[in-house]
Each structure stands twice: as structure tokens, then as C-alpha cells.
């Protein structure tokens, strides 16, 4: 991926970097990211920095490109034949679309939790153990047991399932399944966790559970979450980026964006005039 430096919009860079109040290390840096599905352009040049050990929320009306952007960060878009990505995305300063980067390695470092809980049709134990196993971690049984237990603990699921680790993961409730999927992602020890509307299929109680969990996870991981629920973004994130029609309109500290949006489109969306 070669970044096109011709059409750089200086204001966008300014917005993406200068406004950064929550000073942390930049974990992911994206510059002029464009995505095409066939002839249709889904992202029109995104500039966005994501800070380490913080939760960044991507909000915006449906079809605005926030999920598309998220799926660029661990190259999940590669699995779609007609999808083409341009621009620069760096993870710890390394171009993830560069030649030396391998998608398998990248996805091990940048985990993902999906909109609908998607446990494998295996036991709860095997669901968690699958990732470490393919990456050659925890080859010994006792090592793996530790990984499974810690992951489930960290996902807040351990107490509920400790006695039925051999039962299929598909037998859990929706909220439990989603926490299982988070545990599955954690078990690989990624640096970044991407969450694509992780609570959209869940009831309010399960949602509260997950939100709590996200807040705890922030300590150890860099989290990017796509949500259509603004309250959720306000509750869990430190920074929020507003996407609209394939553009990243505004990014700022969450508090700032919800109290004092600079762009009138952001304001319109937040106040519920459209979206």
C-alpha cells in the first residue's frame, strides 16, 4: 500500500493528531485510508491515530464506513475478494499492508470481536484454546489450562462456566457467548482488540456486563470499538471518532465530542437530528 501524499488534507492531520488530549503512545496510525468495494468507494481518506491503553469509539450513522475502517486494522477486508485498500496504516510504526507483514501474524496481534457472537461449534475449553494452539502457545496441557482459566477470568465468565468447560460453546446464552468470544480473543494475547458493535445482539444486562469488561480490559489492551449506541460510546471510551458518509469528520476526547462538537454534522448526529 503506497500512501498517496498528493491529496493530503492538512486540516485532517491537524485534527487527528493535534487534538489529542489523552496523551499516550500512538499505537495505530492511519493516513489517507481509502477503501473500495469494486467501483464503490466506502472510505474517502481517513486520518486517525489510536492511542495505546485506551478505548477509542467509532460512531456514526449506519453505512458511514466505521466498520469498514475497523476491518482494515487487522486486514479482515482481505477475505472479501472485491475489496481494495489504499493509504497507510501503521501498527507500532510498521505498515500493516507492507510486504513483510503477514496477515496471520497481524491478526494474532490485533484480535477481533464480532457483532454477532460466533463461538465455534466446539467445547468452551476448545473455543478458548483454539487460538493459542494454532499459534503454538501452551503446548503442555497444564499451560493451556492456565491460559483458558485466565482468559475466562478476565472476560468475567470463569465463575459461570468453570464446571462445564467440556460443554459446547454454542449452548451458552447470547451475552455469555459474546464474553466467550472476548475471552477467545484475549487468549491469544493480542495488543489491540477490535470490537465491531459487540453488544448489538445482546440485552441490556449482558451489555452492561460487556461494557464493564471493556473498561477493565483497557488497562492491558488497546481497544477500538464500533458502536451505533452513543451512550455506550460515552460510557466506555476515552476518545471518539465520528464517521459520516465514508469520511472521518471529527475525533476528540469523548467528553469533548459529546459536550462540544466542532462539526455541525457531529452535533446533528449526537443530538439525534439524523442517524
Amino acid at each position: 500500500m503506497t500512501a498517496s501524499t498528493m491529496n493530503v488534507d492538512p486540516s485532517a492531520i491537524a485534527m487527528s493528531n493535534a487534538d489529542a488530549v489523552g496523551t499516550g503512545r500512538v499505537k495505530i496510525h492511519s493516513k489517507d485510508v481509502k477503501v473500495f468495494y469494486g467501483a464503490k468507494q466506502a472510505l474517502k481518506g481517513i486520518y486517525l491515530d489510536i492511542f495505546e491503553h485506551s478505548v477509542t469509539a467509532l460512531i456514526g450513522p449506519s453505512g458511514c464506513g466505521k466498520s469498514t475502517y475497523l476491518r482494515c486494522l487487522n486486514r479482515m477486508n482481505d477475505t472479501i475478494d472485491i475489496c481494495r485498500v489504499e493509504g497507510l496504516i501503521e501498527l507500532d510504526g510498521e505498515d500493516i499492508y507492507g510486504r513483510t507483514i503477514d496477515t496471520v501474524q497481524l491478526r494474532a496481534r490485533v484480535g477481533m470481536v464480532f457483532q454477532k457472537p460466533n463461538p465455534f461449534p466446539k467445547s468452551i475449553y476448545d473455543n478458548i484454546a483454539y487460538g493459542p494452539r494454532i499459534h503454538g502457545i501452551g503446548a503442555r496441557r497444564d499451560e493451556m489450562d492456565v491460559i483458558v482459566e485466565k482468559s475466562l477470568q478476565r472476560a468475567g465468565l470463569w465463575d459461570e462456566v468453570r464446571d462445564r468447560l467440556k460443554e459446547p460453546g454454542t449452548g451458552l446464552s447470547g451475552g455469555q457467548q459474546q464474553r466467550l468470544c472476548i475471552a477467545r480473543a484475549i487468549a491469544v494475547s493480542p495488543e489491540v482488540i477490535l470490537m465491531d458493535e459487540p453488544c448489538s445482539a445482546l440485552d441490556p444486562i449482558a451489555t452492561a456486563h460487556i461494557e464493564e469488561l471493556i473498561d477493565e480490559l483497557r488497562e492491558n489492551y488497546t481497544i477500538v470499538i464500533v458502536t451505533h449506541n452513543m451512550q455506550q460510546a460515552a460510557r466506555v471510551s476515552q476518545r471518539t471518532a465520528f464517521f459520516h458518509l465514508g469520511d472521518m469528520v471529527e475525533v476528540n476526547d469523548t467528553e469533548e465530542i459529546f459536550t462540544n462538537p466542532k462539526d455541525e454534522r457531529t452535533q446533528g448526529y449526537i443530538t439525534g437530528r439524523y442517524g
Binding site: 501474524q105 494474532a108 496481534r109 493459542p132 499459534h135 503454538g136 502457545i137 501452551g138 499451560e143 492456565v146 491460559i147 485466565k150 482468559s151 478476565r154 484475549i186 487468549a187 494475547s189 495488543e191 488497562e219 492491558n220 489492551y221
Partner: peptide, 26 residues
């Protein structure tokens, strides 16, 4: 505590050195 696998007995926890996924072994 970043890395679950690093909590294993015998492994030394290190921060943000190149991740285990960038090791030669991997």
C-alpha cells in the same frame, strides 16, 4: 500482565518489547 501467556511460570514478563508474534520462533 499484558500477556496471558507471559503469566506462565518460567516466562519473564516484559513490556512492549517486540511482541511474541514477532519472535523468530513464531
Amino acid at each position: 500482565m499484558t500477556d496471558i501467556a507471559q503469566d506462565l511460570p518460567g516466562t519473564v514478563a516484559k513490556r512492549r518489547t517486540p511482541s511474541r508474534y514477532q519472535s523468530d520462533e513464531f
